[in-house]
C-alpha cells in the first residue's frame, strides 16, 4: 500500500473538476441534521466530517428497485436483460460500509455471477474515509478486520489541513494521480496511523467474529429470541438500513399500455413477516423470534462461516433505526452471554 497526501483545498478542486467533467460523482452530503449519499452538483456539498449516513452506499450497486429484464407482455421470446448505471466515483465511504461492499462483491460473484451487480460495481471507483466523528452505535472495529481493503480503491485520513491517502488498488493509484496527490513526506505513515486511531468505537462486540460464530453455535433455542421479539413490530427498519443485507424480491410490473413490462428486483428482508412464505401460505419462519434469530445468525454466523467475512460490519444503523430498540447486535450478544 502506498501512502500519499493532498491538501484539503486541492482535494476540493479535484472534486469540482470531476463534477465538471460530467461524470456522475456521489458523495456524503448534509441533509438537515442527517447525512446521506447523493449526487454532487458542486464540491462544497461534499461533507466528509460526518457521523453516519442514513443509508449505506449499497444503493448504487444494489438499488432499492432495479430492472433486470424488459419484455413485451406475454411474449417470452422478447425477454431482454438491462443493466443500470452507477456513479463514476463515490467519495466518503466509512470502513464498515466499505467492508460491506466487499461482502456484496463476494456474494454476487461467488457461484452464479450476477452481472447486473458486477457491471455497476466495476464501473465505480470507491474513495473511503476514516471516521472523524464518533457514532454512538458503531462497533466496526470488532467486526471488519481487513475487509474494507478488499473493496476500497483508496482511503482518506483527515490530517487537519491535509488528507493522508492510503492507495489500495490500481484504480486508487489512478485517481490519486488525477487529484495530483503527492508522495508522503517522512513520517506520514505514523501520522495516518495516529489519525485513524483517534476515533474509537463507543461500543464493541465481546468477541472476534470467528469467536462470535462459535459462540452462536448453541444459542438457537435461547429464550432471548422470543423474549426480545415480543417488542418487534416486524417493520423491517433494521434490514432496510443494513449495508450487508442483500436479500431481494423479484416482481413483474407492466406499463400502463399493458404492452410491455419489466422484471424488477427490490430490497426485501428476513425480518418481514412473509419473507419465508411458500405456496399455500405456509410460513417457515412464522414467529418474530425465529426471524430475529435468523437475522443475527446470518450476520454473526452463516456468512462468516460461508465467506470468512463479516456478515455484520458494525455500522450501528440497525441499533439506531429500530423503533422498539431491540435490534442492536451488541446488546443481543450481551444478553445471550449472560
Amino acid at each position: 500500500m502506498d501512502f500519499m497526501q493532498i491538501s484539503k483545498k486541492d482535494f476540493q478542486k479535484f472534486v469540482e473538476n470531476l463534477i465538471q467533467s460530467k461524470e456522475e460523482v456521489v458523495g456524503v452530503v448534509k441533509k438537515g441534521k442527517h447525512f446521506a449519499y447523493d449526487i454532487l452538483e458542486k464540491s462544497e456539498q461534499l461533507c466528509l466530517d460526518y457521523t453516519e449516513t442514513i443509508l449505506p452506499p449499497k444503493k448504487y450497486f444494489l438499488p432499492v428497485e432495479e430492472t433486470l429484464l424488459k419484455y413485451k407482455t406475454g411474449v417470452a421470446s422478447s425477454y431482454e436483460a438491462t443493466y443500470g448505471k452507477s456513479p463514476k466515483v463515490i467519495i466518503g465511504i466509512h470502513p464498515g460500509d466499505m467492508a460491506a461492499i466487499a461482502l456484496l462483491d463476494k456474494s454476487f460473484s461467488e457461484g452464479e455471477k450476477d452481472s447486473h451487480y458486477l457491471n455497476k460495481r466495476a464501473n465505480s471507483t470507491l474513495i473511503g474515509i476514516y471516521p472523524t466523528q464518533s457514532f454512538p452505535h458503531r462497533f466496526s472495529n470488532s467486526m471488519i478486520e481487513k475487509d474494507a481493503y478488499k473493496a476500497a480503491d483508496c482511503f482518506l485520513v483527515d490530517l487537519g489541513n491535509d488528507y493522508g491517502i492510503e492507495v489500495v488498488t490500481e484504480k486508487g493509484k489512478k485517481i490519486a494521480s488525477a487529484m495530483k496527490a503527492v508522495a508522503g513526506e517522512k513520517g506520514l505513515n505514523e501520522k495516518i496511523a495516529q489519525a485513524k486511531a483517534k476515533i474509537k468505537d463507543e461500543v464493541s462486540m465481546p468477541f472476534s467474529r470467528r469467536e462470535l460464530s462459535e459462540f452462536l453455535h448453541n444459542k438457537e433455542t435461547h429464550a432471548e429470541w422470543k423474549k426480545r421479539a415480543e417488542k418487534c413490530f416486524s417493520c423491517g427498519s433494521c434490514v432496510l438500513v443494513c449495508p450487508t443485507c442483500y436479500c431481494f424480491d423479484v416482481k413483474d410490473t407492466v406499463a400502463l399500455s399493458l404492452q410491455e413490462g419489466e422484471r424488477k428486483r427490490m430490497w426485501d428482508g428476513c425480518m418481514l413477516e412473509k419473507f419465508a412464505n411458500v405456496a399455500g401460505n405456509h410460513n417457515f419462519r412464522k414467529l418474530a423470534g425465529d426471524r430475529l434469530k435468523h437475522r443475527i445468525f446470518r450476520k454473526g454466523k452463516y456468512i462468516i462461516d460461508k465467506f470468512g467475512m463479516a456478515g455484520c460490519v458494525g455500522c450501528g444503523r440497525c441499533s439506531q433505526a429500530c423503533v422498539a430498540n431491540i435490534a442492536s447486535p451488541v446488546d443481543i450478544v450481551q444478553e445471550l452471554k449472560k
Binding site: G111, E112, D114, F248, D268, V278, A279, K306
Partner: peptide, 24 residues
C-alpha cells in the same frame, strides 16, 4: 424440501434454511 426459491441462483435469500440455500 419445499421453499420459495425465488432467484434459483443462491442470492435472494428466500429459500434459506438456517445457513443453507435450498436452491443451491
Amino acid at each position: 424440501l419445499e421453499r420459495h426459491m425465488k432467484c434459483g441462483v443462491g442470492k435472494c435469500g428466500h429459500c434459506q434454511i438456517n445457513r443453507v440455500y435450498v436452491c443451491q
